[in-house]
Simulated assay, not measured.
Amino acid sequence: MEFVGGVGYTNIDLIYSGMDRLPDTGEEVFAKRFEMHLGGGVPATLINTSRLGVPSKILTFVGNDFFSEFAKKSYAEYGAEIINLYQGSGMPVILTSVMVCNQDRSFTSYREEATASCCTAEDIYRHLSGAKLVSMHVGFLDVYKRLKEEGTVLIFDTGWEDDLSIEKYEDYLRLADYYLPNQKEALKITGTNTVEAAAEKLSAYFPQAIIKLDKDGCLLRNSAGTQFIPSMKGVTAVDSTGAGDAFMSGFMYGLFHGHPIEQCIRFGNVTGGTCVQGIGCLTKYVDEKTLLELAAAI
């Protein structure tokens, strides 16, 4: 059976929202609401692909600590089966405090140990071999090389880093079939000042250069030129946490079913646009029927 898959850390988001402003150094600001949710990353993307009816394999790391137990319960509640690669005795999940203010957000994250060291590349390869699509995560390059040789389509998304650069991730960029940065990430990694210039630079690596533009939709540059694919209509954004992971789930759905790249992006705009209408990464989502209906209206 064809499936999509990926390996990535489990994230737990501690979300503070309803603040008038973010605190400055030395200040305390009280939030009106607090929630704890399963966070973003590869597992969140694959939870949403499974919600769309795509067979999905989630490889991750959970232990026996309080937050890992919360994660296991959350995975079960979402109907997601995971393959746990962790063999240590610590806390392998990543904790992130998320402060949401006027649709903007700030993050502080903590990871106790390098959990990937407790499994082998062969373990990961064995579980992902045969996948039609794989969502890439930094740290498993040799696995992705083997999968690529077998014909697996690889999709990469870096996320924001202060030292984000093409040089840092060139091996991944040259290996991936698709790269899905948002506007800020695209400008940073290419060292350019406009999305058009960033797309031109990324097109040296990707025949289909894609840049997510938040509420303005998505830029696509390919042999046909540059076009802007609009976002979903009627979106009232509450929290943009996890929007990129949600976009990838819709995009992967389209690739899995063989849709043209423009339609894959429309699917991503729907799943990403739906995600931002709720607090956290996974509270707002669409099923397959709704996805097709909403994408047809874009």
Rank of each mutant, 00 (worst) to 15 (best):
S50M: 06
R51D: 09
L52I: 12
L52M: 06
P55E: 15
K57M: 04
K57Q: 03
I58C: 08
F61C: 10
F61S: 10
F61I: 04
F61W: 12
V62I: 13
N64E: 10
D65P: 13
F66S: 11
F67G: 00
S68K: 00
E69H: 03
E69A: 11
F70R: 08
K72M: 06
K72A: 06
A76P: 11
A76N: 07
E77P: 07
G79K: 05
G79S: 04
G79F: 13
A80E: 11
I82F: 09
N84Y: 03
N84I: 09
L85I: 07
Q87V: 02
S89H: 14
G90T: 05
G90I: 02
G90R: 08
M91N: 13
M91A: 14
V93W: 00
I94E: 05
I94V: 15
L95D: 06
T96M: 02
T96D: 03
T96K: 01
S97P: 03
V98N: 09
M99A: 08
M99T: 04
V100F: 01
V100I: 02
V100A: 01
C101S: 15
N102E: 15
N102L: 14
D104W: 01
D104M: 06
D104Q: 11
R105A: 15
R105D: 13
R105W: 08
F107Q: 13
F107P: 09
T108Q: 10
T108S: 11
R111G: 05
R111Y: 00
E112L: 13
E113P: 00
E113I: 07
A114Y: 07
A116K: 04
S117H: 10
C119F: 01
T120Q: 14
T120L: 15
A121M: 14
E122Q: 14
D123R: 03
D123Y: 00
D123M: 01
Y125W: 12
R126N: 14
H127Y: 15
H127E: 13
H127K: 12
L128S: 13
S129W: 00
S129V: 00
G130I: 12
A131I: 01
K132P: 09
K132D: 08
L133K: 02
L133S: 00
L133A: 04
V134G: 02
V134C: 06
V134H: 03
S135G: 05
S135C: 05
M136I: 07
V138D: 00
F140Y: 15
D142K: 08
V143A: 03
Y144R: 09
L147M: 04
L147T: 01
L147N: 04
L147F: 09
K148A: 04
K148D: 01
E149L: 09
E149I: 05
E150S: 05
T152A: 15
V153H: 10
L154E: 09
L154R: 07
F156C: 14
T158N: 15
G159N: 08
W160L: 06
W160K: 10
W160S: 06
W160V: 04
W160C: 04
W160A: 15
E161F: 08
D162V: 08
D162H: 10
D163Q: 08
L164H: 03
S165Y: 06
I166C: 08
E167R: 10
E167I: 02
E167V: 05
K168I: 01
K168Y: 01
Y169I: 14
Y169V: 13
Y169T: 11
D171E: 15
Y172A: 12
L173Q: 13
R174S: 15
A176P: 05
A176N: 10
D177Y: 14
D177L: 12
Y178C: 07
